[in-house]
């Protein structure tokens, strides 16, 4: 009986450990236009929801911003022009998961395509969670070219 309880306990522990690890990679955010940027760049505002205030890092903001530019796009308004997602649809994230999984991991290559605007972070507590907002400057053209070279998004001239 003792063995059975121990096994069950060990199984549950490992299950929660996997869950916790997965939570680290799930990006929970909203993306909006952050203003007009110079040629080849997109200025975006991301609102990231985290459990602890210390989790709202620049790295997380960068991952969310690049993810949003690639898979979600954002609506315009107030002088901003809406931008479509670079990948065309969110389905391509699953289609090319071999590429995107390490790309968007903590410390992944995606962080190299953007910078967080200094002093743009604002954090507020909402219920039991924290919502942190950042303004991030994403090198959209460079990102698109590299994703095209990697073969995960299609070039305008592909097929010809």
């Amino acid at each position: 009986m003792k063995h059975l309880i121990c096994t069950l306990f060990a199984f549950l522990l490992s299950f929660f450990a996997i869950q916790a690890k997965d939570d680290g990679n799930v990006l929970n955010y909203e993306i909006n236009c952050g203003g007009s940027a110079v040629q080849g760049y997109s200025l975006v505002k991301v609102k990231v929801t985290v459990k602890k205030a210390k989790d709202a890092t620049d790295d997380l903001a960068k991952r969310c911003a690049v993810h949003g530019v690639v898979f979600r796009g954002y609506a315009g308004g107030q002088g901003c022009v809406s931008q479509p997602p670079l990948a065309g649809s969110a389905m391509s994230e699953q289609q090319y998961s071999d590429f995107y999984k390490p790309f968007f991991e903590k410390g992944g290559a995606c962080a190299g395509y953007c910078t967080v605007v200094d002093g743009s972070m604002l954090i507020t507590k909402v219920d039991k969670q924290y919502v942190a907002s950042f303004v991030v400057n994403v090198a959209r053209d460079r990102l698109r070219k590299d994703l095209e070279s990697a073969g995960v998004i299609r070039k305008l001239s592909s097929g010809f």
């Binding site: 007009s36 901003c80 022009v81 809406s82 479509p84 065309g88 959209r140 305008l156």
Partner: peptide, 29 residues
């Protein structure tokens, strides 16, 4: 585009071209 007090017309035009290009090329694709 957003109204501006200071930006010169060529700058506003240039900004408009670059902001709309992504949508345009997506539709062209």
């Amino acid at each position: 585009g957003a109204p501006s007090f200071s930006a010169e017309v060529p700058v506003l035009i240039e900004e408009a071209v670059q902001n709309h290009m992504e949508n345009f090329s997506t539709q062209l694709r």
